[in-house]
Design a protein around this nucleic acid. Structure first.
Length: 292
DNA sequence: CTGGGGAGGGGGCCC
DNA sequence: AGGGCCCCCTCCCCA
């Protein structure tokens, strides 16, 4: 089953049932599209894809999730053709290994005349990302660096995402919302599709981790740990290119960008590149590149 | 205006 | 289920 994930929506009119906060609302009239089964057709994989790809492919492991109603599976298999994977029904498959659809999976599924939720993948609209090689660069051994941002747009709500994986997670949101499997925060109106995600979010309201030195409170122990370093001066993350050290790994990562010859974020209107998205955003907001 | 460091927040994944 | 850790991102500030 797909992992639960954050529901970033504030449009809820649902009333939280705090009597069973820890209880998922059961919906009788669950999402017709999801009533059968939510199947990760191509399971998400955090590891680096082995096949370089200029653009996300329809069978990209990190992007292809769909809600497949079990009764529709024979129909789906027929549309995909006889060469389709037998394992498609329940376990998912990475077609790049042994099989790939002869036509884009999206088109195959569209032939089914299914409700929109059953169609995958969602429309991709890469705007940036000429160097989206699909192979995350390595940092500090097993760590990952972000890909060059593109824009991948949700078919349903047109919400933009920087990565196909982010879009894939977002698409699950539509499935969960239609199914009514939603937990709402009692402190704000954020909604989550799993209780665990909600509990984690609630910590951002209750801030159970307090600094013994200054009293500042944090939602998670590791946030507090990072904060304590601001008191102790500990900087365990050293740059391998210079003598600088950092208390925070993310800041080291940002710093390493300054050693890189290639800037990841390029202005869409001029060719100027930036090491950080925030710098690009500031550049665009500054009006440096007046429109046509 | 730009580049970069410091600090922190958020959700996801793994064990 | 919970903790630890991950990545991604943002904001603020300063040179």
């Amino acid at each position: 089953m797909p992992r639960s994930f954050l529901v970033k929506t504030h449009s809820s009119h649902r009333v939280p049932n705090y009597g069973r906060l820890e209880t998922q609302r059961e919906i009788d009239g669950a999402c017709s599209a999801c009533r059968g089964l939510v199947v990760p057709l191509l399971p998400q994989d955090r590891e680096a894809p082995s096949v370089p790809a200029d653009l996300p492919q329809p069978w990209d492991r990190s992007s292809a999730f769909a809600c497949i109603s079990l009764p529709l599976l024979p129909q789906l298999k027929e549309a995909l053709g006889a060469s389709g994977p037998d394992a498609l029904e329940v376990s998912g498959v990475d077609p790049r290994g042994s099989w790939a659809p002869s036509v884009p999976l999206k088109d195959s599924l569209n032939h089914l005349d299914l409700p929109p939720l059953l169609v995958l993948p969602t429309r991709w609209s890469p705007i940036l990302g000429p160097d989206q090689d699909g192979a995350p660069e390595k940092l500090l051994g097993a760590e990952r660096m972000p890909r060059t941002p593109g824009v991948f747009e949700c078919f349903h709500c047109h919400k933009p995402y920087h990565t196909p994986a982010g879009l894939a997670r977002h698409r699950q949101l539509h499935c969960h919302l239609q199914a009514g499997r939603v937990f709402t925060c009692r402190y704000c109106d954020k909604e989550y599709t799993s209780l665990g995600a909600l509990k984690m979010h609630i910590r951002t309201h209750t801030l159970p981790c307090a600094c013994t030195i200054c009293g500042k409170a944090f939602s998670r122990p590791w946030l507090l740990q990072g904060h304590v370093r601001t008191h102790t001066g500990e900087k365990p993350y050293a740059c391998s290119h210079c003598s600088r050290a950092f208390a925070d790994r993310s800041n080291l990562r940002a710093h390493l960008q300054t050693h890189s010859d290639t800037k990841r974020y390029q202005c869409r209107r001029c060719t100027k590149t930036f090491s950080r998205m925030s710098l690009l955003a500031r550049h665009e907001e500054s009006g440096c590149c007046p429109g046509p």
